[in-house]
Design a protein around this nucleic acid. Structure first.
Length: 511
DNA sequence: GGACGGTGAAACTTCAGGTTGCCTC
DNA sequence: GAAGTTTCACCGTCC
């Protein structure tokens, strides 16, 4: 076997190989299995590089309205030509990095699996620093061969006239090198398995089939599933029948479907019965909610009539859709317990006892709710990163999902006649979208006015549209600048109203 | 004698990502 | 299970 010597500059071979790649005038992607490791490895590499990418560094630093610690670290690395890349970065930063790498401005990207899927970002070398990843409850696990192949597949840039690429696996010893060679280089990729029989998946598909009228009886349900990949793969309809049966009963219990009573019962087959969606079931299917989530939301919304923003956020934070909820770290226990104590009596979800298995998950939902709530209290990204260890990219994803669930909650309330909750839910939704306190809502009606400017206006004494209309000449311009001040003035005169979502209008019109 | 700083070992803590989902102007 | 971070004990130095 041919061997190549790489100069040893540090005690980390992946750093040395990355540096060697840059020294050859080529680029490298380094794959690691945690965000923290990505950041540290990138810093180790950057420290030894002498790139000059001040422009890129500045762009990365100022991607948010106020830079987080993460932004600062990223910018510092980038200025020398190496960066980290993971789901915690703001989308803008990811885009900047990907473009800069394609343009050859960056020598090295150290990343978690983010760059292995979706993004097409080839490099001369890919370096897989670690092939073991922690899975909760299972300890360290080998990453799948398929994942390794995704990594290795990123090496070589034919567009840049590379005649070959190099994929490097890092081993800590000779025996481990043998094992990696065996397992990953010569190994077979895993089989692909159908996940249809996994309950949440089946729940959704089953309700969708019934709601769309594709199936109307238990027998047509089974004959549908007989033709799926799941049945093809496992050839075990008995198991699927059992799961289908159980799921149907649950959907009926939850009020999403009705089943005609049956005259005959056979022991090992599903009883032949007619199946129809209820109007609630139809809506749940349209909303693409997991029926279990819909059920939990309905229970929660129905349990109390006085709805607090925190309680609503905690309710949605405890659903499957919001997973993974934010893990509560040791040093955060007090913070979470305080929040719990404060909001305890208004919660819509029953608190498990300390000894319950799901207690950790409950605390995680409280932490998630608390984080979202702080966002609606106008806390910014640097604060959320410091306080909850939530990075900007992760915040964005959570906000998106929460927005969708709030919409779903509104729709469910309409259908269930919980009219008194509607206004509050809509208000929370807008507050979450913009990250503002309730007092700013009236100002958000204006185009060009968001979280920051509405706060500026409010601080300057313009608290309502009425105040704005009564503003003396030049006053708005002093707060907002010439152009925007002018635009707001025109909007107030009714020339160019902001396009609005109907929910927003409904929720804002009350002010 | 005590404050301070540096060092290294031990103890402690944490651990990927994503797709679409709704509606609408 | 391992990497990375924090804590702590220990020692030497300086005022």
């Amino acid at each position: 076997m041919q061997s190549v010597r790489i100069p040893e500059v540090t005690d980390d071979p992946s750093v040395d190989i990355a540096l060697d790649t840059v020294a050859k005038g080529k680029q490298a992607l380094v794959f690691v299995t945690s965000k923290r490791s990505a950041e540290k490895t990138a810093e180790d590499i950057a420290r030894k590089l002498k790139g000059k990418q001040e422009g890129l560094a500045r762009q990365l630093l100022t991607a948010l309205s106020r830079p987080t610690k993460q932004c600062e670290r990223l910018a510092k690395c980038a200025s020398r030509g190496a960066v980290f890349h993971h789901a915690g970065l703001a989308q803008k930063q990811r885009d900047l990095i990907e473009t800069a790498f394609r343009e050859g401005k960056l020598g090295v990207i150290v990343c978690t699996p983010t760059l292995a899927y979706g993004v097409n970002l080839p490099s001369f070398r890919t370096i897989v620093k670690s092939v073991k990843r922690y899975e909760s409850g299972r300890g360290l696990r080998w990453i799948p061969v398929l994942e390794y192949l995704q990594y290795a597949g990123r090496s070589g840039r034919p567009d840049f006239h590379d005649d070959h690429g190099e994929a490097v696996l890092i081993a800590s010893s000779e025996p481990e090198a043998e094992e990696l060679l065996e397992r990953y280089v010569h190994g077979q990729p895993e089989e692909i398995y159908s996940k249809l029989a996994v309950e949440p998946v089946l729940r959704m598909h089953l309700l969708a089939l019934i709601a769309s009228g594709t199936v109307r009886s238990t027998s047509s349900i089974l004959s549908f599933f007989e033709r799926t990949f799941w049945a093809h793969q496992f050839k075990d309809m008995d198991k699927l029948t059992t799961v289908v049966d159980r799921t149907l009963r649950r959907l009926e219990e939850w009020g999403f479907i009705t089943m005609a009573s049956s005259d005959f019962v056979s022991a090992d087959e599903l009883e032949e019965r007619g199946v129809r969606p209820t109007s609630l079931g139809m809506r749940v299917a349209q909303l693409y909610l997991d029926p279990l989530t819909a059920h939990q939301l309905i229970l929660g919304l129905g349990s109390h009539r006085g709805l607090s923003a925190f309680a609503a956020l905690q309710l949605l934070s405890s659903t499957l859709e919001m997973r993974p909820a934010l893990r509560v770290k040791v040093k955060e226990y007090d913070l979470i317990q305080d929040a719990l104590l404060q909001h305890h009596d208004k919660l819509l979800v029953e608190e498990p006892t300390l000894y319950d298995e799901e207690y950790d998950a409950f605390l995680a939902s409280v932490k998630t709710a608390l984080m979202l709530h702080e966002w609606t209290e106008e806390k910014d990204e640097p604060y959320l990163l410091e306080t909850f260890d939530v990075r900007p990219g992760e915040l964005k994803v959570k906000l998106q999902t929460a927005d969708w669930l709030l919409y779903a909650m509104v729709e469910l309330c309409k259908l269930l006649g919980f009219k008194e909750l509607l206004a509050e839910l809509m208000k929370i939704r807008v507050r979450l979208e913009y990250g503002v306190r309730e007092e700013l809502l009236p100002l958000l009606k204006l185009k060009g006015i968001g979280r920051v400017r509405s706060r500026q206006l409010f601080a300057a004494g313009f608290k309502t549209v009425g105040h704005l209309k009564a503003a003396p000449a030049g006053a708005l311009e002093r707060v907002l600048g010439e152009k925007l001040g002018q635009s707001v003035r025109e909007q107030l005169e009714g020339k160019t109203p902001r396009e609005q979502k109907p929910e927003q209008q409904a929720s804002l019109s009350g002010y």
